[in-house]
Design a protein around this nucleic acid. Structure first.
Lengths: 226, 226
DNA sequence: ACAAATCGTAATAATTTGATAACATTGGTG
DNA sequence: CACCAATGTTATCAAATTATTACGATTTGT
């Protein structure tokens, strides 16, 4: 999983810096905007994984920004956390109505902020990854249990082999280049020699049998679907 | 689900009317009492699904009413929400000590009141339907008694080990990452090193045997289900 | 108040997994 | 059919991950 990107929208430069510094050191990619206009623009441009939105801002307040974003098909599902001053409960209710995913009152401890952010991201992640198991031929792969079945036999593949097989099966029939496989399973930034894929493929074949994964010379591999 | 019944206890007739009007229009069945005495009587008589209790009342205050109710076997488990004046934090602490389930400060928006009420009711509903005991292989874990059985042997695990085992068994077969376990058992904001999980796992294995909990390297742990 | 139990952490050992190089084989094309 | 590039295969070493132990702080039980 690569770095999640978080957009912070707040008119106070100090807060912007404080929060972004801390989030960056927690391994997040951070974008900043000083007003609602820019915020909306950046959201559309970068599709961050989460938006931290100050409510009290001149011109366009956070609630308005939120509402505008919720209307946009393309960014509708990006979670939004509001930053609000303590005790402003009426606003809180409004915010929840307009589609906020969490509320954090300032002043806030960074630790708490980070854990709330992670919680929201997790919730969204889980909602997204619904399908966890596939079945093709006599092979079944179950991501929740991390087990591969061939008929009644069970196989426990190491992580990389499992992920590789899972991805191939989930797109059964489709040829995937080594590069695609590397990007998907190893990640965009990790650099490994593409021969590595071959080795893992071989290990899978060794365990399950040769006839499930087909080599398309000069192109890549595919999980046979017929 | 039929209409939930809510009892409101408050000495101010205005507030009684205001709240009951709004709750009724939200689909609740509403009972009213103007003092603690009547309140207690009505609770015993009607067993409402929830009690809204004003703290500041002549004669018997809300805290006292709460305490009396908590002592009564038959109505012990009815959730109580206190209504209190803003900023009286000491009282709030007292109230939580005496068994309050939530706190709402006056003046309050009706919308918020309703959403808090629904939240508390939901929480109680979930708690009621919660399964408290699981059995897998020769292991049985009983949450109400806080005891683990292996065959006829009894084990008393310390809290963390128990919770960990309980969670693993309740999702038997499914791999849970350290992060998930930490969030579930330690809580979202408590920060402990993830190696801590390993140590607790080891202690469980030491007591029950190595072959119940399986390590999935790079992923997490799972309670074997086969 | 003392002893025992619990819990979190750090340090280190043990183990598994993964990446790469080196060499073997294959399959298609001229 | 021979050649060449692409893939298969194996062994090895490094890195990543987990297991285990020990210790101190805190809590709990008596």
């Amino acid at each position: 999983m690569s770095k999640p990107t978080i957009l912070i929208v707040d008119d106070e430069q100090d807060i912007l810096d404080l929060i972004s510094y801390n989030l960056e050191s927690e391994g997040f990619e951070v974008l900043k905007a000083e007003n609602g206009q820019d915020g909306i623009k950046l959201v559309k441009q970068h599709k961050p994984n989460l938006v931290l939105l100050d409510i009290m801002m001149p011109k366009m307040d956070g609630l308005e920004v939120c509402e505008k974003l919720r209307k946009e098909q393309s960014v509708q599902n990006i979670p939004i956390i509001f930053l609000t001053a303590r005790g402003d409960e009426q606003t809180e209710v409004d915010g929840l109505d307009r589609g906020a995913d969490d509320f954090i009152t300032k002043p806030i401890s960074i630790k708490k902020l980070v854990s709330r952010i992670k919680a929201v991201l997790r919730r969204f992640d889980e909602a997204k990854t619904e399908v966890t198991s596939f079945e093709v031929h006599d092979i079944k792969i179950d991501r929740e249990r991390y087990i591969v079945y061939r008929g009644d036999e069970k196989f426990r593949l190491p992580k990389k082999e499992f992920e590789l097989l899972y991805y191939l099966i989930s797109l059964k029939g489709i040829v995937l280049s080594r590069e695609k496989l590397l990007n998907k399973i190893w990640g965009d930034d990790i650099h490994v020699v593409d021969r590595t894929v071959d080795v893992h493929i071989r290990k899978i074949r060794e365990k399950l049998g040769d006839h499930y994964i087909e080599t398309i010379k000069g192109v890549g591999y595919r999980f046979k679907s017929e």
